[in-house]
Structure formats: structure tokens, C-alpha cells
Computed example of a mutant assay.
Amino acid sequence: MSLDELKIGHFYSNGAYGRTWGVRQLAEIAADSETGEAVVRFRGIAGTCRRKKGHCSPAEFARWAKYQVALVENDWKRVGGDAPSSAESPAV
């Protein structure tokens, strides 16, 4: 993902499969008190990240985050128009 696509409060997945899959919520982007450089703070929500908090540079978070997700009922779904619509589906 690009840095421009990241939004505070939204959820992101690393797009991995199996045990390495994870979902994080971007909590804030702030300046580090010692260096003055931007730092992302996040909360682990599901998968390997669950119940963990962490921080990294915005570039590291953007590399980790493959796409935005949202919780739909009990399942994390990718946000966006990646699934073909009925108009794009081939006729049977």
C-alpha cells in the first residue's frame, strides 16, 4: 500500500495465509519524541498480531499492509472492488 492510502482508525491485513496472517488497526501517526521522525502506532486485532501493540515507521507499516479490511459478521473481508461484479461475471 502507499502511505497516502493509510488512514487512522482503519484496519489492514498483511495478506498472508495460515499462521502468519494478521490484522492491525492503525491507531495513530505521530512524531517520535526523541528523533522527531514520524512513527505509526498500531493495535493487533486478529491473527498473529492479536492483542499486541506496536510501532514502526510509516514506510514499514505500508510495506506490511497489503490491503484494507473490514469485519463483516465474523469474517475479515478485503475493502474495495477486487471481486468481479455480476456485470463483469461471464454468462453461464
Rank of each mutant, 00 (worst) to 15 (best):
V40I: 14
I45C: 01
K53A: 04
S89N: 03
H10F: 05
L26F: 10
S2P: 05
W64I: 00
A30G: 03
C49L: 12
S85N: 12
I29S: 11
G44V: 11
S85L: 05
W21P: 01
R19L: 05
A46M: 04
E34V: 14
E88N: 00
P84H: 14
Y12R: 12
L3G: 11
V69N: 14
N14T: 08
S85F: 06
P58Q: 08
V23T: 02
V40H: 09
L6M: 07
Y12L: 01
P58R: 05
Q25I: 02
F42D: 02
K52L: 03
E34R: 15
G81Q: 14
L6V: 03
D82A: 09
G18A: 13
A38Y: 03
V23L: 04
G81W: 03
V23I: 06
A46L: 03
E34K: 14
S2A: 06
G81H: 13
P90E: 00
G15W: 09
R78E: 15
E37F: 07
R51N: 15
D75W: 13
R78H: 10
W21L: 12
T48Y: 01
G81A: 12
K7V: 04
G15M: 09
A46N: 10
K77V: 14
G44I: 06
R43S: 07
Q25H: 01
E34G: 06
S86M: 08
R24I: 02
R43C: 01
G81R: 10
P84G: 05
V72F: 09
Y67M: 10
R41I: 09
V72H: 13
A65N: 01
E28C: 15
K53H: 05
K77C: 11
G54R: 11
R78N: 08
A59R: 12
N14Y: 09
I8H: 01
G80P: 00
Y12E: 06
A46R: 08
R41S: 08
L3C: 09
E73D: 15
E60F: 10
E88F: 00
S2R: 15
N14C: 08
R63E: 02
R19E: 08
E34P: 00
C56K: 05
A46I: 02
V39M: 13
G54E: 03
G36N: 10
A87Y: 05
A65I: 05
R51G: 06
Y67N: 06
G15I: 04
F61L: 07
T20M: 14
A91G: 02
V39D: 00
T48I: 07
K7F: 04
A46T: 02
A38H: 06
V40E: 08
W64F: 06
V69P: 11
S86G: 03
F11E: 03
S57H: 06
A27M: 12
S2V: 05
